[in-house]
């Protein structure tokens, strides 16, 4: 593409470059300062505290009897991971859910954004509002709606399927279907990602499409060679944020089983549910903190992999430096 070409238009003499670089650094730090200040004052304390607590037996209702226990929490976690205890099984549920829901949501959000950005579509404001609307319903309320909607005997979906002569799964009452039910429910939250893609699409210069047209490219070529590279930065964002989101997936599963056991049959026992149970139900906040840091490590590794590969597929028109 042409855009990347004329980057080094400013040629400063070597001597001034030093001071320029320093000035740039100072300016940059000045711009980062609100965040750096917030990090020190608001964010760092709880994060560091949680790391410190992960080496203790901190019990939330007996904070006074806190004791340093070294790596015991991590040892317990390791054993629950190896013998397919709570850690292993909840990681499994979370991974299965991630594999089903993240790719589906990203494709759907991108498809919808392209559709809702179409010249050929009348009433765009209405459609955008409609597709975004479910995001605005509090999660607890929308999960209750879906419980009713998906009910295997009186839910609308079951009635439609029965009307078509098809059997209906019992969704949230069937261990084999509950996770898929949550994936369906997740589709209702597609609005956020759709909006990000829509914002990304606004930044694609029209000239580029015309260039492809001149070259005789069709719709697919336009998508493949213009749209996709141009929105790859926000695609990257969506992927990473979805992974973080799944690692903390909680509310919907908690509404499905308010006792947090992951019912039906443990099929919705997400990683974060186990963490919540340990920390808040069994009061082992020390152990829950260790669980949080294990997930942190997993997600950081995923993020690093994404960042490493991003050089190959994410295209920054403004250059990355």
């Amino acid at each position: 593409m042409v855009i990347v070409e004329d980057k080094e238009s400013v040629h400063a003499p070597p001597q001034r470059k030093m001071s320029l670089a320093r000035r740039e650094t100072l300016w940059g730090l000045a711009f980062l300062s609100p965040w750096l200040f917030g990090l020190v004052v608001f964010t760092a304390l709880p994060i560091v505290a949680s790391l410190a607590l992960s080496f203790t037996n901190f019990n939330i209702i007996h904070p006074e009897s806190i004791k340093f226990i070294g790596l015991d929490n991590y040892a317990r976690m390791w054993s629950e991971l190896l013998n397919n205890g709570a850690v292993g099984s909840s990681l499994g549920v979370t991974a299965r859910f991630a594999l089903m829901s993240v790719p589906l949501l990203i494709c759907l959000a991108l498809g919808l954004a392209l559709l809702l950005n179409q010249k050929l579509l009348a009433g765009k404001p209405v459609f955008r509002t409609l597709f975004f609307m479910p995001v605005q319903i509090p999660l607890v309320a929308s999960t209750i709606v879906w419980q009713g909607f998906l009910n295997g005997s009186t839910g609308w979906l079951a009635q439609i399927l029965h009307g078509l002569g098809l059997p209906s799964p019992d969704w949230f009452s069937d261990p084999a279907w509950a996770l898929q039910g949550l994936v369906l429910l997740g589709i209702w939250g597609v609005g956020n990602m759709m909006l990000i893609f829509l914002a990304g699409l606004q930044g694609v210069p029209t000239e580029l499409y015309e260039a492809v047209k001149v070259d005789g490219g069709g719709a697919w070529a336009r998508f493949r060679h213009v749209t996709l590279p141009m929105i790859s930065p926000v695609l990257f964002y969506n992927i990473l944020i979805s992974i973080i989101g799944v690692s903390q997936y909680f509310t919907q599963a908690y509404v499905i089983d308010p006792l947090g056991r992951g019912n039906p049959g443990g099929s919705t026992f997400f990683y974060n549910m186990n963490l919540y149970k340990e920390g808040w139900t069994y009061n082992n906040m020390g152990y829950a903190s260790a669980l949080a840091w294990l997930m942190m490590v997993i997600v950081v590794v995923a993020a690093l992999v994404l960042f490493r590969t991003s050089a190959r597929w994410v295209f920054y028109a403004g250059g990355e430096r």
């Binding site: 009452s173 056991r261 019912n263 039906p264 139900t281 069994y282």
Partner: peptide
Amino acid sequence: YIKAMDDYGKVFSTLATT
């Protein structure tokens, strides 16, 4: 207590789902 309640509860709930 609570862990034990969760564990038998998990099995008991399958009586109505499975």
